[in-house]
Simulated scan of single mutants.
Amino acid sequence: MTTVPSLALNNGVTMPQLGFGVFQADPSETARAVETALATGYRHIDTAAAYFNEREVGEGIRRSGLDRDQVFVETKVWATDYGHHRTRHAFDKAAAKLGVETIDLLILHQPVPLRFDRTIEAYKGLEDLLEAGEVRAIGVSNFMPEHLERLIASTDVVPAVNQIEVHPYFRQTAAQQANAEHGVVSQAWSPIGGITFYPGWGGDDRRSTLQDPVIGEISKAHGRTPAQVMLRWHLQQGRSAIPKSTDPGRIAENFDVFGFELTAADLARIDALDTGVRSGPDPETLDPDRSPLVIPEA
Rank of each mutant, 00 (worst) to 15 (best):
W189C: 01
V166W: 07
G193R: 02
L126M: 09
A160W: 13
L148G: 02
H222Y: 12
L148Q: 11
S186W: 00
D205W: 13
P168D: 10
D212Y: 12
K124H: 13
L148D: 04
A221N: 03
S141I: 01
V161R: 08
H182Q: 15
G139N: 06
G194R: 13
D117C: 02
R136P: 08
E181Q: 13
V158P: 07
L148N: 04
I215T: 05
A160C: 13
I164E: 03
R136C: 08
Y123A: 01
A153M: 11
T209R: 00
A180K: 11
I215R: 05
V185W: 13
V135N: 10
V184A: 12
L148R: 11
G194H: 09
V161A: 05
G200S: 09
S208V: 03
H182F: 07
G200H: 12
A122Y: 12
M144R: 14
G216Q: 05
E165S: 07
G193F: 05
Q172V: 02
K220F: 03
H167Y: 10
T155G: 11
K124R: 15
R115S: 10
A132N: 06
L210K: 11
V157K: 08
P213I: 00
E134V: 01
A174V: 01
V140R: 01
V157H: 10
A221I: 00
L130Q: 12
P111E: 14
V161L: 04
S219C: 01
F116K: 03
I120N: 09
A160I: 06
V161D: 05
I120C: 05
H147F: 07
T209V: 02
E127C: 03
N142K: 11
E131G: 12
Q177R: 06
Q187D: 02
M144S: 03
A175Q: 06
Q177W: 07
Q187Y: 08
A221Q: 02
T119K: 06
R150S: 12
D117S: 05
A153R: 13
N162H: 14
V166C: 05
T209I: 00
Q176L: 07
L108I: 06
E217D: 15
V166D: 07
F197C: 02
F143M: 09
P191E: 08
P168I: 04
I164C: 06
P159W: 13
Q176A: 07
T155A: 04
G183H: 15
F170T: 00
L108H: 04
P213N: 08
A188H: 07
L130W: 14
L148S: 08
H167V: 02
L114F: 12
G194N: 13
V112C: 15
A132I: 02
M144F: 11
P113Q: 12
G139M: 08
I120H: 04
T209K: 03
S186D: 11
P168Y: 08
K220N: 03
D212I: 03
W189P: 00
